[in-house]
Simulated scan of single mutants.
Amino acid sequence: MKRLAAVSAAQLCLGAMGLRTALRDRRSYDVGFRRGSAENIERDQWFIGTALSAPNYMLVLQGVCTVALLVRPRRWVARVLGVLGVGMTCGQAAERSAQAAWRHWDAQITPLTAAATVLSAVMAWWGLAGDPAES
């Protein structure tokens, strides 16, 4: 479970970097038929997220679970990280700015969103199915 905690910590760092970048550049969320506004990004970051990060409540829960996994590994904590990983993977793939960055290279956004999505997917897999190295 330490490898899951390490992946989660790395993904959380990318989430924090995405949040910082989104707040600086005023990049609000744009998923499906829902679109945020730059004027409300400070409010939206808490419950809906930004174009480059999950909502803050998810990032806080991820941080708490990551620390808990290191202090006292429990299967249910790993599952919570797995569920968060599923949500983050789907959210990042649905975000229009990430889709645009994956189609047309953006030196700032493409590596951030691609790495965060891959780590979220690994977090989902290891959190729900278990880390193959621990079998």
Rank of each mutant, 00 (worst) to 15 (best):
M1A: 11
K2E: 08
R3A: 09
L4M: 08
L4N: 08
A5C: 07
A6Y: 14
S8R: 06
S8Q: 00
A9H: 03
A10M: 13
Q11V: 10
Q11K: 07
Q11I: 05
C13F: 15
L14F: 14
G15H: 11
A16Y: 07
A16S: 14
G18V: 06
L19C: 12
L19Y: 10
R20A: 15
T21W: 13
L23S: 03
L23K: 06
R24C: 05
R24D: 13
R24L: 11
D25K: 11
V31F: 00
V31S: 03
V31P: 04
G32L: 08
R34P: 00
G36K: 02
A38F: 02
A38Y: 09
N40G: 05
E42H: 08
E42I: 00
E42Q: 08
R43V: 15
R43G: 06
D44W: 06
D44F: 04
W46P: 03
F47R: 14
F47G: 12
I48W: 15
G49D: 01
G49Y: 03
A51P: 02
A51S: 11
L52S: 04
S53R: 03
S53H: 06
A54D: 14
A54M: 15
P55M: 00
N56H: 10
N56S: 13
Y57C: 10
Y57L: 08
M58E: 07
M58S: 08
M58F: 05
L59F: 12
V60R: 05
V60Q: 03
L61I: 02
L61Y: 07
L61T: 11
G63K: 05
G63M: 09
V64N: 02
C65T: 03
C65F: 04
A68S: 12
L69P: 01
L69W: 03
L70V: 12
R72P: 06
R74T: 12
W76H: 13
W76C: 14
V77D: 02
A78W: 07
A78P: 13
R79V: 11
R79G: 04
R79C: 09
V80C: 07
V80S: 04
V80L: 12
L81H: 06
V83F: 13
V83E: 09
G85A: 04
G85I: 04
V86Y: 06
G87T: 04
M88H: 12
M88A: 14
T89G: 08
G91Y: 03
A93E: 05
A93H: 03
A93R: 12
E95K: 10
S97T: 12
A98E: 01
A100I: 14
A100F: 08
A100N: 02
A101N: 05
R103C: 10
H104L: 11
A107M: 14
Q108V: 14
I109R: 14
T110D: 02
T110F: 04
P111Y: 02
T113E: 13
A114P: 05
A116Y: 01
T117K: 03
V118K: 00
V118N: 00
V118S: 00
L119P: 09
S120C: 01
S120D: 06
A121V: 07
V122M: 06
V122Q: 02
M123V: 09
A124W: 11
W126T: 00
L128Q: 06
L128N: 05
G130N: 05
G130C: 02
G130I: 01
P132I: 11
P132T: 06
P132D: 05
A133E: 11
E134G: 12
S135N: 15
S135C: 11
